[in-house]
Amino acid sequence: MRTQSAQNRDARAVTASRPFTVIGHRGARGHAPENTLLSIDTAIRLGADWVEIDVQHHDGELWLMHDLTLDRTTNGRGLLTAHPAAALRRLDAGDGEGIPTLAEALDLIEQRVGVNVELKSWNGCANAVAACLREYIADGWPAERFLVSSFHLPELWEFKQLLPEVPLGALYCGVPLDWAGLAAELGAQTLNISDEFVDARLIADAHARGLALYVYTVNDETRLRTLWQMGVDGVFTDYPDRALAAVGSEVRE
């Protein structure tokens, strides 16, 4: 009969062999203004595997902006959609950075990392993002280097009809009654869930359905290690450097 210590060593070896994806949240918002080119470049320099950016469609452009309003992250006021493109171009999004477009972000990234595009608006956002990503795929970007996600699942479903080769991430802020069932029904490749709702049964169900499970937004190193040990596949973090330090080089892809 094998001893408990031998079983524990084997369990640690299996955990250490699993890939663990570090996703820079809004770039690296712990180090630079969120959703700016500076934040994205910082995340890449810190070693993130992927960057996550928020996108809204307005006035013919796809703007990198999380909030529907400008007040928190720029020197502007009111709804983003209340301002024409020319006015948005003049705003300061922090440290002298402007509000970039999705195309500007992708041109900066140049396939150095994967890109999670979160749809933050609806009624046309899916169509505009699909048209943009289609051009980059035609120029040589692998479709699997993109992940399109949203809490607005009907908008995510619309995107799937437009560009089915790009993987989807279903965003949840709770644990559904059918566990990961809805994400699987949607045809998503990842289930992205808030840290406060991580559940061992949800992790197991996601994996049984062939889904990766990513957790947002995790900045504490002890919590990062705990989630890795629980079996999650990756985290969104404001500090990619902390996540890399927490899980160690032995789990890097």
Score class of each variant (00 low, 15 high):
residue 74 T to I: 02
residue 92 D to Y: 04
residue 123 N to Y: 11
residue 176 P to G: 08
residue 221 E to P: 13
residue 39 S to E: 02
residue 105 A to K: 04
residue 107 D to K: 04
residue 9 R to L: 14
residue 238 D to Q: 10
residue 223 R to F: 05
residue 1 M to K: 11
residue 180 A to F: 10
residue 25 H to R: 05
residue 204 A to H: 12
residue 198 V to D: 07
residue 79 L to H: 02
residue 10 D to C: 04
residue 237 T to W: 04
residue 245 A to I: 01
residue 104 E to P: 06
residue 197 F to H: 15
residue 19 P to A: 06
residue 159 F to R: 07
residue 95 D to Y: 08
residue 3 T to H: 10
residue 242 R to Y: 15
residue 240 P to K: 09
residue 25 H to M: 05
residue 41 D to N: 15
residue 22 V to Q: 09
residue 196 E to Q: 12
residue 218 V to A: 11
residue 107 D to W: 00
residue 151 F to E: 05
residue 201 R to V: 11
residue 34 E to D: 10
residue 168 L to K: 08
residue 13 A to I: 03
residue 127 N to I: 04
residue 76 G to T: 02
residue 102 L to R: 00
residue 182 L to S: 12
residue 8 N to D: 13
residue 168 L to G: 00
residue 217 T to M: 06
residue 31 H to C: 06
residue 80 L to A: 03
residue 1 M to N: 10
residue 9 R to G: 02
residue 247 V to Q: 06
residue 22 V to A: 10
residue 79 L to V: 00
residue 98 G to S: 07
residue 104 E to M: 02
residue 73 T to K: 01
residue 216 Y to N: 10
residue 167 P to G: 06
residue 196 E to K: 14
residue 185 E to Q: 15
residue 1 M to S: 15
residue 100 P to C: 02
residue 110 E to C: 08
residue 173 C to D: 15
residue 76 G to D: 01
residue 15 T to A: 15
residue 120 K to I: 07
residue 25 H to P: 07
residue 218 V to Y: 12
residue 44 I to S: 07
residue 161 Q to N: 13
residue 46 L to V: 00
residue 71 D to R: 13
residue 148 V to M: 08
residue 32 A to W: 03
residue 209 R to A: 11
residue 216 Y to Q: 08
residue 124 G to F: 13
residue 153 L to D: 02
residue 236 F to N: 04
residue 15 T to H: 09
residue 180 A to Q: 11
residue 241 D to P: 09
residue 191 L to I: 13
residue 228 W to L: 00
residue 85 A to L: 01
residue 154 P to H: 08
residue 2 R to C: 02
residue 245 A to N: 11
residue 135 E to H: 11
residue 54 D to P: 05
residue 197 F to C: 11
residue 234 G to I: 01
residue 54 D to G: 01
residue 166 V to T: 02
residue 246 A to I: 03
residue 31 H to A: 13
residue 44 I to M: 14
residue 59 D to Y: 11
residue 43 A to N: 08
residue 73 T to G: 01
residue 141 W to Y: 14
residue 106 L to M: 03
residue 189 Q to D: 03
residue 218 V to R: 14
residue 173 C to Q: 14
residue 168 L to C: 02
residue 220 D to W: 10
residue 244 L to N: 05
residue 17 S to K: 10
residue 16 A to D: 12
residue 51 V to A: 02
residue 105 A to M: 05
residue 62 L to T: 00
residue 193 I to A: 13
residue 207 H to M: 14
residue 135 E to R: 15
residue 234 G to P: 06
residue 122 W to I: 02
residue 86 A to R: 13
residue 217 T to Q: 06
residue 175 V to L: 12
residue 134 R to Y: 05
residue 65 M to Y: 00
residue 234 G to N: 07
residue 248 G to A: 08
residue 210 G to C: 11
residue 112 R to C: 05
residue 100 P to R: 04
residue 162 L to N: 06
residue 155 E to T: 14
residue 45 R to P: 04
residue 183 A to I: 10
residue 142 P to S: 08
residue 175 V to T: 15
residue 138 A to E: 14
residue 45 R to K: 15
residue 121 S to F: 03
residue 207 H to R: 15
residue 172 Y to V: 09
residue 112 R to G: 04
residue 250 E to A: 14
residue 205 D to I: 09
residue 102 L to T: 00
residue 211 L to N: 11
residue 183 A to D: 04
residue 74 T to Y: 07
residue 171 L to C: 12
residue 198 V to H: 10
residue 126 A to E: 09
residue 92 D to L: 03
residue 159 F to N: 06
residue 196 E to H: 14
residue 39 S to L: 05
residue 59 D to S: 13
residue 117 V to P: 02
residue 87 A to N: 03
residue 14 V to A: 12
residue 14 V to H: 12
